[in-house]
Design a binder for these strands. Structure first.
Lengths: 298, 298
DNA sequence: AAGTTGTTTTTTATGGATAAAGTTCATGCT
DNA sequence: AGCATGAACTTTATCCATAAAAAACAACTT
């Protein structure tokens, strides 16, 4: 049966809005809520019905108003708010990156399905989606081959990344001074500086910043294939570093400094300086990844 | 139910081998056949059983020998030898590239499933696979968005292609003279010259040559992401030009000449000459594609 | 007429079943 | 022991069913 995770997530979000007073007094219309939550009205109505039922809101003459206070116990547990597909993704990435899955292993849909507690269909869909990341390969009628999260993979990935990023950085720097992206860059620079000041306690926030920065650079001259490639990078890094926390603070600290140099270079519009800063940053990111890959075998 | 296309294709291939005398006299063992046909022994046995049943081969004391002559009527029809997945691919590409599907159209899994006569699952799997080509996009819980086979698409595609091909061509030219790839290149050059001589009658053969050529260039320094990207190109071009035959002969004639210039440039090892030849060829390929795209709207 | 809510219809996400194809085990023969 | 065939078992490709979510339709209100 299809999961009702969309509903549960919407419910939790509404509960939080109620608790934080964002929905004080009379509630907005179903359509208004629908827009805010990015779900269908069908789902909004289901949420409202449950809220009424739990007396978290009251309904009189078709008018809805806030009811009793929201308690922690009102929330659905987090696991119930992510779809099966997302679960499969998480479990697979853990299986692949943390387990002792060796390159050359073949992947068995049925076995994974049993292990993850889902139907084979879901596994297969995930694998098809995941195959574009270059880590697995399909052999028809037979199964999937795990090619390994290896040094080769990292090298090939970074070779492309350097090509794309150099291209995008140069194009970014050649935008007219009037482009709003310069302002966004300036804002991002400030965010970097602020994070740097509190790096000891907030170093986890870097990955979000990193993402915003690299995506901003691509914005000046969009190319869907470059965007897609950046999706691969984000995805891989997200999961890899989720379980590889060694030196995280130091790593992020260094990266912030590199970003700042890179941003300055962009602002200078000097092509050679940009190339140097960009290469320096990517070389360092690559070295970091390689180091952690070697660490994996120990 | 799963289709028995693997069996039928294997049967047809075996029939052809019998007819062409490649299996004269006593037949090889099941294992030997299995290796030759790249299918499992289970399938080989099924083929053999049917061959015996039709008296195309005889079996005495466990020894198999050729039987009566193979007739045209013995073959399974071609449609029955391609999997559902492949059919979906073909029908979808036709729907997309030939129909009047406008950019921004949303794609409905259920509707396509009905139209193509398959289960929704197959459609979805195809769409997931196809989504990496940058022509469609998934909106969760909602459906797929067709972004259109537009000029933008072609421009973005070729921007990447130029980057990749320049990189690969330069790396190719820097291989040691002892590399076997130089011989392969020389052989390919001859094939080009031969095709050129008979261009009027054999211009269809160009696309195979084109593929071999571009893949060869990538072979010198493999990168899985570049290979994947070339898959996209091949796929798109295959289907696009399958239904766009205008000026095919002339187009291919020009491309052969460009390839020859490109090959000469590579053999010269002169970086600048290589860059010029490579760019010239790709610019021309792009112009051709753009022209045919405009033609589509008429 | 535009925005609400109630109702019905359509579509997606997910599980389940099964024939075909692949793989492994068993037996027998040189 | 090594290879051939036979049989049993496992996995993939494919269809079908259904609850959840989205979309479309309808009726009502101001």
């Amino acid at each position: 049966m299809r999961t009702d995770t969309v509903y549960k997530k919407a419910f939790n979000r509404t509960a939080t809005m109620l608790r934080d007073g964002q929905l004080a007094g009379e509630l907005p219309s179903e359509n208004e809520l629908r827009r805010r939550m990015c779900v269908s009205r069908t789902t909004v109505r289901k949420v409202l019905r449950e809220l009424v039922h739990r007396e978290l809101i009251t309904e009189r003459d078709g008018l809805r108003a806030t009811g009793r206070a929201v308690g922690d116990y009102d929330y659905y547990p987090d696991v119930e708010t992510t779809s099966r597909a997302k679960h499969v993704e998480q479990q697979f990435m853990e299986w692949m990156l943390r387990g002792d899955t060796k390159p050359g292993t073949s992947i068995n849909e049925l076995e994974l399905a049993r292990q993850f507690g889902v139907a084979t269909n879901g596994i297969r869909e995930f694998l098809i989606r995941f195959s574009r990341f270059g880590l697995i390969e399909k052999r028809p009628n037979t199964g999937w081959l795990f090619k390994g999260f290896t040094e080769d993979f990292a090298l090939e990935l970074f070779e492309i990344r350097v090509m794309f990023e150099l291209r995008s950085a140069q194009l970014f720097s050649r935008q007219p001074d009037s482009s709003p992206l310069w302002d966004k860059l300036a804002a991002l620079k400030i965010a970097h500086i602020e994070l740097l000041a509190r790096i000891e306690s907030r170093f986890h926030d870097f990955s979000g910043l990193d993402n915003r920065f690299h995506r901003l650079i691509n914005e000046a001259s969009p190319n869907r294939f470059i965007d897609d490639f950046y999706d691969i990078i984000s995805f891989i890094f997200h999961y890899h570093y989720q379980w590889n926390k060694q030196d995280e603070e130091q790593r992020n600290h260094a990266a912030i400094l590199e970003h700042l140099a890179y941003i300055d270079a962009l602002e200078s519009r000097d092509p050679e300086r940009i190339e140097r800063a960009c290469r320096a940053h990517l070389a360092s990111a690559r070295a970091t990844l390689m180091r952690s890959l070697i660490g994996l075998d120990e």
